[in-house]
Design a protein around this nucleic acid. Structure first.
Length: 272
DNA sequence: ATGCAGATAATCT
DNA sequence: GATTATCTGCATG
């Protein structure tokens, strides 16, 4: 069916009206659409509610930042972290319960040119550190998704092109590829079934999001393990991924960032 | 292939 | 003031 991925039905809100650790594994293989870009989820992490999950943003209760997590299910919780990155979650359980699933990685299945442009340029608040805008002229479409080709096409002299598998490999990269920013915090990812039937979601308007059924991952292919980048609750195996999928991000243990000795010194006469 | 350090700002104590 | 649900480039083996 060619690009059949985008013609799958929309997920109902009830799908997210469950504990996040139950929703998370079933989210693998599903497709999140935002404007022209669609991503097939291959890696996610569940985060629980107040008092039950020390690693969750909601552990200490409701605050202005995590308010969306306490709202109705199926909405996007987008937060800013490390002074430069956005990460996207899908809210679970009914209003009043603060839990969600962090979207850690996926495969871009539509709008690959747009996704690459966002990841390449300084587009979404990304600071182009070392490499400049690369002046990349539009590479070949390769919209079929299949075909591991596209390697040979000129990556623009001077700057190497981002491999397809890395476009949404990691939570911050996934957010950039989908064009999710602060303003999309709270955006509803559940669309009306009638809308899905009429438009077939082949062209979700810019600014709108939609969760599609996609093709759920085979249960036998799902793996689980400890969550990434957290300093607490390291024994809770609430990270789920599709075994063998090249877009799954490598596991990285949390490393306490080495503080600047001068900054922490109490009376430190440390001169720089 | 693996490891480290820097960037950079909102949020919470 | 410390921490952070991270990414990237550069260094080393």
């Amino acid at each position: 069916m060619g690009s059949g991925e985008l013609s799958s039905a929309a997920l109902p809100r009830g799908f997210f009206d469950r504990p996040s650790h139950e929703v998370a594994p079933e989210l693998l293989g599903r497709v999140l659409v935002h404007g022209p870009v669609a991503v097939r989820l291959t890696e996610v992490e569940a985060y629980g509610g107040p008092g039950e999950d020390p690693a969750a943003h909601t552990y200490r209760g409701k605050t202005p930042r995590n308010a969306v997590m306490f709202g109705p299910p199926g909405h996007l919780y987008v937060y800013f972290t490390y002074g430069m990155h956005f990460c996207a979650n899908l809210v679970c359980l009914p209003e009043g319960f603060g839990s969600a699933v962090l979207l850690r990685a996926g495969e871009v299945v539509a709008g690959i040119d747009e996704a690459r442009a966002r990841r390449t340029s300084t587009g979404n608040g990304r600071t182009s550190t070392g490499n400049g805008p690369a002046a990349g002229t539009g590479p070949t479409s390769a919209s079929t998704g299949t075909g591991p080709t596209s390697t040979g096409t000129g990556p623009a002299a001077g700057g190497r092109a981002i491999p397809d598998r890395d476009l949404a490999r990691g939570p911050a990269r996934l957010a950039v590829a989908l064009g999710l920013l602060r303003e999309h915090n709270g955006l509803d990812a559940i669309v009306e079934a009638s809308y899905a039937a009429d438009r077939r979601l082949t062209g979700v308007p810019h600014g709108a999001a939609a969760m599609l059924e996609g093709r759920p991952a085979e249960p036998d292919s799902i793996r689980s393990g400890p969550r990434t980048g957290i300093s607490t609750a390291k024994d809770t195996p609430w990270r789920f991924w599709i075994d063998g999928d090249p877009t799954v991000s490598p596991y990285r243990a949390h490393v306490p960032r080495r503080r600047n000795a001068a900054a922490t010194s109490v009376g430190g006469a440390s001169r720089s």
